[in-house]
């Protein structure tokens, strides 16, 4: 492994409270190409702490690209410039010596900043709580092989279900739309037989809460798909449109 250090200038967003005014603070850093971006932030924080200065608040957990906790915008790209990569998997060898980086939080009205690079993504949970499930109680399930699911259907459902809920789609969208995120869950259950009984109720409930939580609408720029660390397809958005329009016109409920 190459251990030649490279020199970077990092401009990192600092914002002490949700209401205070933020600014970019500049850090010059020699980094190992084998380190991840988050490890560089760890290094800076260690230095700041040793100097008695306030460290940069940022979130991460699994550092394996699956928990969806980390999420930074690097030079305008959510999760940085590499496709299908979460911030924690972004290694410094992807940058050039002397490069300047601007690191800032996901920006959207629906994701208010809590501190520095940490944002509040609880809107996502609210949407899931509205209908991102199959309603049945533990203990009542039939034998697992009683429900036959063609391999292709299971694979397609998993393609959608792989969403890690990081919010990069919202961050990438010029409208801060959550359509890719919501449609991934709607699609998983619209595709699978288990989701059929609540198919129409689910999509209506989830879209309603999505709209209430100040996410914008989709103008089909597909920036979400390009920035998604799991490569979730925008065909899910089309499916959700179809499901929603179908739900409104086919069902017999007159109100809501």
């Amino acid at each position: 492994m190459d251990n030649n250090h490279i020199h970077l200038t990092l401009n990192i967003w600092r914002q002490e409270t949700p209401s205070s005014k933020g600014f970019f603070e500049e850090f010059k850093q020699d980094v190992s190409p084998d380190s991840s971006l988050l490890e560089i932030l760890d290094e800076i924080n260690n230095r700041l702490e040793a100097e008695g200065k306030r460290p940069i608040a940022f979130e991460s957990d699994c550092r394996e690209g699956i928990c969806g906790t980390c999420g930074l915008v690097v030079n305008g790209n959510p999760h940085g410039p590499l496709p299908k990569t979460a911030t924690c998997q972004l290694h410094m060898r992807n940058f050039n010596d002397g490069e300047t980086l601007f690191i800032e939080p996901f920006r959207a009205t629906a994701f208010p900043i809590i501190k520095d690079l940490i944002v509040d993504r609880s809107g996502f949970d609210k949407i899931q709580q509205a209908g991102g499930f199959v309603s049945f109680n533990a203990g009542s399930a039939p034998d697992a092989n009683a429900i036959l699911i063609p391999k292709k259907i299971a694979d397609l459902a998993l393609d959608a279900a792989e969403c890690i809920g990081c919010g990069a789609c919202v961050a990438a969208c010029k409208n801060s739309s959550a359509m890719l995120f919501v449609s991934a869950k709607v699609s998983q259950f619209a595709i699978l037989p288990q989701g059929q009984p609540e198919r129409y109720e689910r999509v209506q409930a989830m879209v309603k809460v999505m709209d209430e939580n100040l996410f914008g609408s989709c103008t089909n720029t597909y920036a979400c798909e390009a920035e998604c660390p799991k490569g979730i397809s925008v065909s899910n958005i089309a499916r959700m449109n179809r499901e929603y329009i179908g739900a409104k016109f086919k069902t017999e409920e007159l109100v809501d």
Binding site: F133, V134, S140, A141, P142, I147, D155, A157, Q188, F189
Partner: peptide, 16 residues
């Protein structure tokens, strides 16, 4: 059984 009923997309054989 529980997880399949929840819609967990486990890997499948071609026969389903």
């Amino acid at each position: 059984d529980q997880c399949v009923a929840q819609g967990v997309p486990f890997a499948r054989e071609y026969g389903g």
